[in-house]
Design a protein around this nucleic acid. Structure first.
Length: 405
DNA sequence: AAAACGGGGCT
DNA sequence: AGCCCAGTTTT
């Protein structure tokens, strides 16, 4: 059979299959461009099952572009809490504000305008244009690269940006006349339900008979993809500082900087350990680390001008981001009058009031500067009920819940 | 071109 | 416990 017939077969069979079995997802209720837009942003790097509850809550709280544009930023961030990649939420709201101001609150039926919105890249602009407006644009995500790599037996590394560009050209050529939205969703649906990464279910696949990878028995070898580097380890000590007097029953939290990791989210105060101290955390029992407790307490004194007394070890927690592995140790601390046991231990370890040892690495220096630049104005005492208002990343939310359990 | 940027699911 | 998933922005 000729290549063009193989392509036509693919498009026709896939589209027919999708129209029979497509899942009933909340963002498929209608073609409202705003609903499509929100769903596509949430679905970046995130599975359908995870997104569904967030999507429903988000749409009821921010039903229109204007509602989102006019909402307080913290509220938007709070609604994104636990979803990850928080710049998506801030970019989405920035986009909503642009649509409100420049396009009167109507998402424009124009590729360049949509592609110009913050947080909207090649995939998302293609998805919005095709799904909401039925324009023949490619929407190439990981599913699509996997499906097409297998069906056409493409051996390019899908981790390379240039590969996506090539697959986009192929994808456009496959779009059936007048069915761009359904076809693009069909491609992703097949990748999600049938042509899965690990063990694809070829037997029920609507296009198996002309799948080049399957025909040559190579469906599990494709697509080719270079593996990511493992995350680098970072050791951090953190404190749960319990207030007294006015602050009785409250604890000390702070807001992260405007940019970078977990930007603008709230957190328990913590400190990146230089490599030599990190070994201490890794190798020594929590209760014998007066020195580490002492370091975080000195950092807090310098930031807040309050006398912080570490009292006891609370818990250890690991958190793995895509590029960093945080190994954290939490101490309970208060503003007590007398020195705590841990401080005594630190003193006997021979550490006086000297500041934390000079930075050993560029990373540590950068972290220390960022911490200092934001110091003092970003700290705040919160009670249990404030957890419902301030956005915290999951790792800190878990610790807070454990503390207030 | 490579790194930064979360969090959860599967085996 | 280790491996996998992968869009956009920034460097």
């Amino acid at each position: 059979m000729e290549q063009n017939d193989i392509k036509t077969f693919f498009s026709t069979e896939l589209l027919g299959w999708y129209r029979l079995i497509k899942r009933d997802l909340p963002w498929r209720m209608n073609r409202d461009p705003y609903r499509v837009w929100v769903s596509e942003i949430m679905l970046q790097q995130t599975r359908v099952d995870t997104v569904i509850p967030y999507y429903n809550q988000f749409m009821s709280r921010f039903p229109t572009v204007t509602a989102l544009a006019e909402a307080p930023e913290t509220e938007v961030l709070k609604s994104w809490e636990g979803l990850g990649y928080y710049s998506r939420a801030r970019n989405l709201q920035a986009g909503a504000r642009e649509v409100k101001e420049r396009y009167g609150g109507i998402v424009p039926d124009d590729k360049a305008s949509v592609a110009g919105l913050k947080g909207v890249g090649p995939y998302t602009s293609g998805a919005i244009m095709s799904i909401a407006f039925n324009r023949p644009e490619p929407a190439v995500d990981g599913n699509v690269m996997r499906v097409l790599s297998r069906y056409f037996c493409l051996e390019d590394d899908i981790a390379k940006p240039s590969t996506r560009v090539g697959i986009e050209k192929l994808a456009v050529s496959l779009i059936p006349e007048g069915a761009a939205g359904d076809f693009n969703q069909a491609l992703m649906e097949l990748g999600a339900l049938v042509c899965t990464p690990k063990s694809p279910s070829c037997l029920p696949c609507p296009v198996m008979e002309h799948c080049a990878a399957r025909l040559s028995g190579r469906e599990t070898e494709l697509p080719i993809k270079t593996k990511a580097k493992p995350p680098r380890a970072e050791f951090r000590t953190a404190a749960i500082v319990m207030g007294s007097g006015e602050q009785e029953g409250k604890i000390l939290v702070r807001q992260r900087p405007e940019t970078g990791l977990l930007a603008q989210m709230w957190e328990l105060p913590h400190l990146l350990l230089p490599p030599d101290k990190a070994k201490l955390l890794a190798d020594t029992a929590p209760k014998e680390q007066g020195e580490l407790a002492e370091m975080i307490s000195r950092m807090l004194e310098s930031d807040t001008s309050m006398l912080i007394r570490p009292r006891s070890w609370f818990t250890d927690a690991d958190h793995i981001f895509s590029h960093i592995h945080w190994k954290m140790r939490f101490y309970l601390a208060d503003l007590g009058e007398e020195a705590g046991a841990l401080e005594a231990a630190a003193a006997s370890a021979g550490k006086g009031n000297a500041l934390v040892a000079a930075e050993s690495t560029a990373e540590y220096a950068a972290d220390a500067r960022a911490g200092q630049a934001e110091a003092s104005s970003i700290y705040r005492w919160i009670g249990k009920e404030d957890m419902e208002t301030l956005p915290f990343p999951n790792l800190f939310l878990r610790i807070l819940k454990q503390f207030w359990a």
